[in-house]
């Protein structure tokens, strides 16, 4: 079980959080102008990499804030957490 450093509350047990999938997938501003293919790319396509991945997490049983995380899926190491709207600190 991870120890997650919520950017608003500090270090908390993983059981307080829920994972929200890949980060930095921006909802298109004008969906109606997209082709079926482009919309499907946004809607369905998600990476699932072995290695460093950018993820969305929610402190669901805490401050309820969403934030982003840089996590290595091969060893579960969390390299960084950062607030929504911020750029990933490491790539």
């Amino acid at each position: 079980m991870f120890l997650i450093n919520c950017p608003y509350c500090g270090e908390r047990d993983q059981s307080e959080f829920s994972a929200g999938g890949e980060a930095h997938i921006v909802r298109p501003k004008q969906p109606t102008e997209l082709s079926d293919g482009q919309w499907a790319e946004f809607l369905f396509m998600r990476k699932n990499i072995k290695g460093v991945q950018l993820e969305r997490w929610n402190h669901a049983h805490g401050c309820r804030k969403w934030f982003n995380m840089v996590r290595d899926t091969s060893n579960d190491k969390i390299h960084a957490v950062y607030k929504m709207g911020e750029k990933p600190p490491i790539k």
Binding site: T32, D36, W39, A40, L43
Partner: peptide, 13 residues
């Protein structure tokens, strides 16, 4: 309406 959650998907093939 210009957009709402799920709107674009109502016109998928």
């Amino acid at each position: 309406k210009f957009d709402f959650i799920g709107k674009r998907s109502l016109y998928r093939s």
